[in-house]
């Protein structure tokens, strides 16, 4: 892994809430232009880790660096797109109004805003529904709009917490196609998941269990290392779900 390609490093990070250890000495790096999957059972600490990377939480020990700068930093956050587990949309507003709001919050110029809104709506295939109220959207549409919002400002790093939860397989496939396109255009993507067929599509995987990073590598590396037939079996060997 060449040093100048590294855009994110998690440097011996631990997190405690009271007496409860949520993250224990996590250490890894992510390169520009890869899809990195964080895999692990519920409660393993995936969300805590991505919230730190998005600048919302602080580690108890260690440091997260993005673009070689310590997090959290408002300047760095301009370059990050974040989508949490909830859709985080304003139901009383139309899709377009939601996008306009967040585009302004990201500091996009007025002219650029309209262009980007058109672009991201096309990416998530919602262009025909831009003037509908979000409250009338289906669950899948909301998830796609939420993704569109995190793409508005052309972030270099995209942090997505379970982006396809509750989405049907067809739609999930099209969303993953979007991720691959974004990666090919140079965007780095961190995605948490506990779905195996999604994990297989990641360039590299980090396995989290009880707050520890138990394994890291490409899906084929992990299968080879454990001498198993599938990622699912490999995951079980590492003590996964």
């Amino acid at each position: 892994m060449s040093v100048d390609r590294i855009i994110l490093s998690v440097d011996h990070v631990s997190k405690r809430y009271g007496k409860h250890d949520v993250l224990k000495d996590i250490h890894f790096e992510i390169e520009r232009g890869e899809i990195f999957g964080l895999l692990g059972p519920s409660g393993a600490g995936k969300t805590t880790l991505v919230k730190q990377l998005a600048g919302l939480e602080l580690p108890s020990e260690g440091e997260n660096r993005i673009f070689q700068k310590p997090m959290p930093s408002l300047k760095t956050m301009e370059q990050i797109g974040y989508m949490g587990q909830s859709d985080a949309l304003y139901g009383e507003l139309t899709a377009k109004e939601n996008l306009e709001f967040f585009a302004a919050i990201y500091g996009l110029k007025r002219k650029q805003r309209q262009i980007r809104i058109k672009d991201v709506l096309a990416i998530v295939n919602l262009a025909d529904h831009e003037n509908k109220l979000v409250s009338s959207y289906s669950g899948g549409m909301k998830r796609r709009l939420s993704l569109a919002i995190s793409l508005l400002h052309k972030p270099q790093l995209l942090i997505l917490d379970e982006p396809t939860v509750g989405i049907d397989p067809v739609l999930r496939k099209s969303i993953w196609k979007t991720f691959e396109q974004l990666r090919d255009s140079g965007t780095t993507i961190i995605v948490t998941t506990h779905v195996m067929d999604e994990a297989e599509k990641c360039d590299r995987l980090g396995l989290l269990r009880d707050g520890r990073l138990t394994a890291i590598g490409t899906p084929s590396d992990l299968i080879e290392e454990t001498r198993t037939e599938s990622l699912e079996e490999a995951f079980l060997v590492y003590g996964g779900a």
Binding site: Y82, S86, A88, Y106
Partner: peptide
């Protein structure tokens, strides 16, 4: 509760 505050705070807004 809807998570929009979290999303807002993940942007560079003060």
């Amino acid at each position: 509760t809807t998570g929009t505050l979290e999303r807002l705070l993940s942007t560079p807004i003060k």
